[in-house]
Design a protein around this nucleic acid. Sequence first.
DNA 1: AAATCGGGGTT
DNA 2: AACCCAGATTT
Length: 363
Amino acid sequence: MNAPALAAAGTATPADAGYAERLLRWFDINGRHDLPWQHPRTPYRVWLSEIMLQQTQVKTAIPYFERFVAALPTLPALAAAPGDDVMALWSGLGYYARARNLQAAARRCMEQHGGELPRDIDALTALPGIGRSTAAAILSQAWGDRHAILDGNVKRVLARYHGIDGYPGQPAVEKQLWQRAESHLPSARMADYTQAQMDLGATLCTRADPACVLCPLQDDCVARREGRVAELPTPKPGKPVPQKHACVLWLENADGEVLMLRRPPTGIWASLWTLPQADDASASRAWFEHEARGDFSRAKALPPIDHAFSHYKLRLQPLRLRDVALHGRVGDNADLRWVARGEFASLGMPAPIRKLLETKLEP
DNA sequence: AAATCGGGGTT
DNA sequence: AACCCAGATTT
């Protein structure tokens, strides 16, 4: 294949014309046409799906999406909802800043854009939680507007197709990928084209064991021709992650309710409800003796929970204590309260804490 | 056990 | 511009 004309990046050149055509022809037969956000394909539903899909795979996102749009079917409904409701609907998906940004953006749309998502790439990108790729995905899918996306799937496809070396998260590499993405845009069918790219990357040009023999782009794929499919895209340079430890207190009152507190609005597990946590057992004891009455030595250590973040590993040691009463009146502090088992579903909680609290224990 | 994913925040 | 942060899932 001839070297593509870099000067022409941004417009489809004759040399590129086949890319979108072949991809769309493949999509018509093999693409995903029944995703819940495609029917009906409204700006609000596309937006919500794109935010969920930023760090979550389609299969995982679908039940969350269904539940979310059933509870909050429109942008004004999202804007008007209590923040706790939004967090509860997001609970388990991870990256909770996405949910807070989502609602903040909805509220800004109510104030500045007449209660609708703006149909303008710059206005969209200015909203919290929406960057260049997400804005492009919304506009192309909701309206058919001509913008290139560059998510993880597209990065992988383009890195292989053009044989681009270097970690795609690196700015210089990402810049090249954007240029390639712009160069392949078709002149019509943008909604299908955007979905087709994501489908190709998700179902066929996968990270491990891609199905190259089925690929509509295999004839011009540099990685395929040079036998470098397995080594592209270049993996992220690894770093050792530190191991951290903490204790969590599982305190129950005489009614079997669990003491929970709301974490601060920034940092890890922001705004989520969780168990009282301290760096070690003696700090847990100090917290307990300050807040509660009872014999701390009765606390029973449960099996530790291991949880992995991208930048550190956390081992949580749960300490369970029952028939606990507090010194003060809990009702005075909205961020610390007794929670009945039946209320768990309505609170946003980190996945490992929810799992811990739902483990069956002897009475 | 390690890699992954897009946007926002900080330096 | 170049890191750093956030978390559940998949491999």
